[in-house]
Simulated scan of single mutants.
Amino acid sequence: MAVIDGTSRLRKVLMCRPDFLVSAAPINVISEQYTEPLDHDKMMQEYSAVVKAYQDNGVEVVQVTSGKKMPNAVFARDFGGDVKEGYILGRFKKPIRFEERRHYEDIMAGLGIPKIAEVTEGYFEGGDFAFIDEKTLAIGVIDRTNLTGVDEIRKQLEPYGYKVYAVKANPDYLHLDMCFNLVAPKLAIAYEAGLPEDFVTLVKEKGIKIISGTQDMIFKHGYNVEALGDNRVMSLKQNIFINEALRSEGMEVIEVDMTELLKAGGGVHCMTFPLERY
């Protein structure tokens, strides 16, 4: 069984070690701030802490590595999306990530997970992929995914009964998971003011409450969290506002201390590709 939605119990994930991440490639508004080499030992410690946090909470972690031509492969989320029937292979926009596509396709084949859709003409990265409920998907059209890619996915998933909504936002936000995340079946965190009104309306019509923060929190990975199911969520230790707000809604917040890996432009959600969630 693969992934039935975005908030059921997370049982198995795919993660990639940052073995070849040396510097923050200036390909988004976060990473372009950092010109000095990254502290590799610190990144490895942070990566290991996330792996341990998953394992301590009953999540199996499949760990892989990449190669010198794939420094940003640590952000495993981005190669595609995963639904109950199989996975969607995306298509990267930035050349620095081109090599990852075949790399992750081979990994998924080795894991025996069928490819049920593929973007070949447009662009689509997994950071833009989000469940709203079991049959409703939101795909961000922000910086790395375009409408052509969304249309390709929509057509290929339609036979499985999925409805796909495109969500446009400021390109500086990079991916949808930087400004919106579902953390429980009826609870989300987001920079609401930066999302299209029709999307916010859709979310609220589904009975989902939105904890809204500031735009500045996007660039500090405040919304980039991972739902573990059973009202649990993994978040950054420094996300004080979000973490307290989530606890006030009855959520258990598992905090991880991460600062160095963030400089490359991704957080906990970006590093995690869900393989089993039910």
Rank of each mutant, 00 (worst) to 15 (best):
S66V: 12
G67H: 15
K68N: 07
K68H: 09
K68Q: 11
K69A: 08
K69C: 06
K69V: 04
M70I: 03
P71T: 01
P71K: 09
N72W: 03
V74F: 13
V74G: 04
F75S: 04
R77E: 02
R77H: 06
D78L: 12
D78T: 11
D78P: 12
F79R: 12
F79Y: 10
G80I: 07
G80Q: 06
G81C: 02
G81T: 04
D82P: 00
D82K: 04
V83Y: 02
V83T: 10
K84V: 15
E85T: 14
E85F: 11
E85D: 11
G86H: 09
G86K: 08
Y87T: 06
Y87C: 05
I88K: 02
L89G: 13
G90R: 03
G90W: 01
K94R: 03
K94F: 09
K94E: 09
K94P: 08
K94Q: 07
P95K: 13
P95M: 06
I96N: 12
R97E: 08
R97S: 05
E99Y: 12
R101D: 11
R101C: 10
R102K: 11
H103A: 02
Y104L: 11
E105I: 01
E105W: 03
D106N: 13
I107M: 07
M108Y: 15
M108R: 11
M108P: 14
A109I: 08
A109M: 13
A109C: 09
L111I: 12
L111A: 10
L111P: 10
G112M: 03
I113Q: 00
I113H: 00
P114T: 04
P114C: 07
P114N: 10
K115P: 15
K115Y: 13
I116S: 13
A117W: 02
A117D: 07
A117K: 02
E118P: 15
E118H: 14
E118A: 15
V119W: 01
T120D: 13
E121I: 12
E121A: 12
G122R: 11
Y123E: 00
E125M: 03
E125Q: 07
G126P: 04
D128C: 08
D128K: 04
F129M: 05
F129N: 03
A130P: 04
F131Y: 09
D133T: 08
E134I: 01
K135L: 10
K135Y: 05
K135M: 10
K135I: 00
T136R: 06
T136F: 13
L137W: 12
L137Y: 04
I139P: 01
G140V: 06
G140P: 06
V141N: 12
D143L: 13
R144C: 02
T145K: 02
T145F: 04
N146I: 01
L147R: 03
T148N: 15
T148P: 03
V150Y: 10
E152D: 12
E152P: 11
I153G: 02
I153M: 01
I153S: 00
R154G: 00
K155T: 03
Q156D: 15
Q156Y: 14
L157T: 15
L157F: 06
E158W: 04
E158K: 14
Y160M: 13
Y160I: 05
G161N: 13
Y162A: 02
Y162D: 04
V164M: 11
V164K: 08
A166V: 00
V167M: 01
V167L: 00
V167Q: 00
K168D: 07
K168E: 10
A169K: 04
A169F: 10
A169L: 03
N170W: 07
P171Q: 09
P171W: 10
P171S: 07
P171F: 09
D172T: 15
